[in-house]
Write a protein that binds this DNA or RNA. Structure first.
Length: 574
RNA sequence: GGGCCUGUAGCUCAAUUGGUCAGAGCAGAGCGCUCAUAACGCUUUGGUUGGGGGUUCGAGUCCCUCCGGGCCUACCA
């Protein structure tokens, strides 16, 4: 039994996430967590909402609510959707939690003491009408290069030229449209990441088993141009973690400022552990044994899941924070990063409301349908594509025909010939031995893919295990056997009923609700992992009662598919 | 502009890291079965591996080049 700490990239508080966000971090993280728990390991699986930053303030303003209230409401919305998708977080926290305030201020103090924080005076654009400093991309104007009128302050999306806000002709606030802008001086804290370049480079260099996507992005940041750059970790905003010392005393010159969201967001992974232990009524030692090498985390394996856009912060900035503190914090052991899922020929887009969002997905189909399709098409090696036709065909074939129908034919056949108990009699022969041998090989292969977090390969391996059941039934043909030799047919169907339980256990990480329904129908709570396949296939003894379950997976009809296709083609309704 | 990823059968993806006739699933075709959600099983048709050149006994895999797709490029998160 090993100990596994798992975190999923924390979703931004602003709005409901789409299926691309889901499959890029939370869903595969949940798959891994459920699998490891199923194998009997000790798992702490954490996620939270990322609540600070300019977009949260603007969204709250748009909703006409105080930002704290807005975030609290949106946290509940996201929590409910997480539950709806069966995401099995041990705790779903908030980056605005008191625990994160304390820890973020703690890390800033430690980094300061280590000489890794410096004060920098810089010039930023201030909007008098909006009453706030504007991040570069919240400033719009005419591109000096190509004349495009809606160029952003960081880059012109028409000619792709890198810009500085002061380059723009007729600059205006992207929030209010106001042209009453001025350049003001402001002081900020910078994390001297450049000082840690060698240490980070050695550390990344030691991670030879990480996905190319992860290490190549990290190396690029380490080595490009002048190398890793220092990074501002504070902002002039109202909503966030105040720049103060851990003991509450003011940080001279930083009054009224907050920490930058990308400084405090990863620290929430740790704070979320603290939230978890408090929620459980446990002492601090409970979370520290996951996060502190000197307090029991020495044997913890820590795996992070995220989309590729998050890699620099997890592979460099956060480790710089942890290492720079001089304290023995647990560093990530494996970063699993994902590419993007596209929607029907283009990108999912939160701002344009394009694609299927988590709430809509659950409105039209059970979570397991989405979980299965998304995981079996996870964008591991390159961007993947969602189309309704592909979704319909795959789900119908894999879930309804291969798995669902197997459960249905086995349970109904048994009910009609032997009644609703596992039949007795008969003895396994060479055919059953061969089946068990094949299953054992396939199950070990499935485990290998899951251990390596090869999500798509694991899904294919699982499906092949399901297919074995149908092949066996076809060959054994208990409906024919029954006429000459009802004892042997009883053995065959007893085996098949045990396969239903076995499939429930193996499939639970992918399709937890259906797995639970299968175990329920088999009238058992024995969900032990089949380390010994032979033994696992006699878990349900003769005489054990069972039920014929409701249809596990109703098929998606052409009409429904066409309806959804049309409904989600345009913009998301207000 | 720079960096990285990617292009394999109609579709979604493999290919033990340079080693037998490039493999699966779906879709298509044929046959079988009838327990089952018109489901299942078996057989089978599809590929000059984006184009061109090179290295090698041997290239989907390595190098060059051209074409296409995508991501990142540090003050969105």
């Amino acid at each position: 039994m090993a100990r596994h700490l798992i975190t999923s990239a924390i979703p931004y508080i602003n709005g409901i996430k789409h299926l691309g966000n889901l499959v890029g971090s939370q869903l595969p993280a949940d798959l891994f967590a459920r699998y490891l728990r199923g194998r009997g390991h000790e798992v702490l699986f954490l996620c939270a909402t990322d609540e600070h930053g300019t977009p949260a303030e603007l969204a709250a303003a748009k909703a006409g609510k105080p930002v704290a209230e807005y975030c609290a409401e949106m946290w509940q919305v996201q929590k409910d959707l997480s539950d709806g998708f069966g995401l099995s977080f041990d705790h779903f926290g908030r980056s605005s939690s008191p625990q994160n305030h304390r820890l973020t201020q703690h890390f800033a103090d430690r980094l300061h003491a280590a000489g890794l924080i410096e004060e920098v005076t810089e010039k930023q654009v201030y909007s008098n009408a909006d009453g706030r400093f504007l991040p570069d991309r919240y400033i719009e104007g005419t591109c000096p290069n190509c004349g495009y009128e809606k160029a952003r302050g960081d880059q012109c999306e028409n000619c792709t030229m890198q810009l500085d806000p002061v380059d723009l002709i007729d600059p205006r606030s992207a929030i209010s449209g106001s042209t009453d802008l001025e350049v003001r001086e402001t002081r900020h804290l910078y994390l001297r990441q450049s000082q840690m370049r060698g240490k980070l480079s050695d550390w990344i260099g030691s991670k030879t088993d990480w996905p190319v996507l992860t290490t190549s992005i990290a190396r690029k940041w380490l080595n490009d141009g002048d190398g890793l750059q220092d990074r501002g970790i504070t902002r002039d905003l109202d909503w966030g973690i105040p720049v103060r010392h851990e003991d509450g005393s003011p940080w001279e010159g930083m009054e009224g400022k907050v920490f930058y969201v990308w400084f405090d967001a990863p620290i929430e992974y740790i704070a979320c552990g603290a939230e978890w232990s408090e929620a459980q009524g446990l002492e601090a030692a409970a979370w520290e044994r996951w996060w502190r090498e000197d307090k029991g985390a020495g044997d913890v394996t820590y795996t992070q899941f995220m989309g590729k856009d998050n890699v620099p912060f997890h592979a460099l900035s956060f480790p710089a924070t942890l290492m720079g503190s001089g304290e023995p914090w647990k560093l990530v052991d494996y970063i699993k990063s994902f590419n993007y899922l596209n929607y029907d020929g283009g990108q999912f887009s939160t701002s344009q409301g394009r694609g299927v969002f988590m709430d809509q997905a659950l409105d039209i189909l059970p979570a397991d349908y989405w979980r299965w399709w998304l995981l079996s098409h996870a964008p591991e090696n390159s961007d993947a594509e969602f189309t309704w036709e592909n979704f319909q065909m795959n789900v119908n074939k894999d879930l309804a025909d291969v798995l669902g129908n197997f459960v249905s034919r086995v349970t109904k056949f048994c009910r009609s010939k032997y009644g609703l108990t596992v039949p007795e009699g008969g003895a396994p022969g060479p055919r059953e031995e061969a089946l068990i041998g094949r299953l054992a090989t396939r199950i070990r292969g499935y485990e290998a893919h899951m251990d390596a977090i090869e999500v798509r390969k694991a899904a294919a391996a699982l499906r092949a295990i399901w297919v074995e059941g149908n092949e066996y039934l076809q060959e054994a043909a208990p409906w024919a056997t029954f006429k000459q030799d009802p004892e042997t047919a009883a053995m065959q169907i007893r085996l098949a009923l045990n396969l239903v339980r076995l499939y429930a256990v193996l499939s639970a990480p992918f399709i937890p609700d259906a797995a639970a329904a299968m175990l329920g129908a088999m009238n058992t709570d024995d969900d032990a992992w089949p380390d010994d396949v032979l033994a696992a296939l006699s878990a349900l003894p003769p005489g054990h009662g069972f039920e014929v379950p409701e249809v596990l997976f109703a098929k998606i009809t052409d009409d429904a598919r066409e309806d959804w296709q049309a409904r989600f083609a345009g913009q998301r309704g207000a």
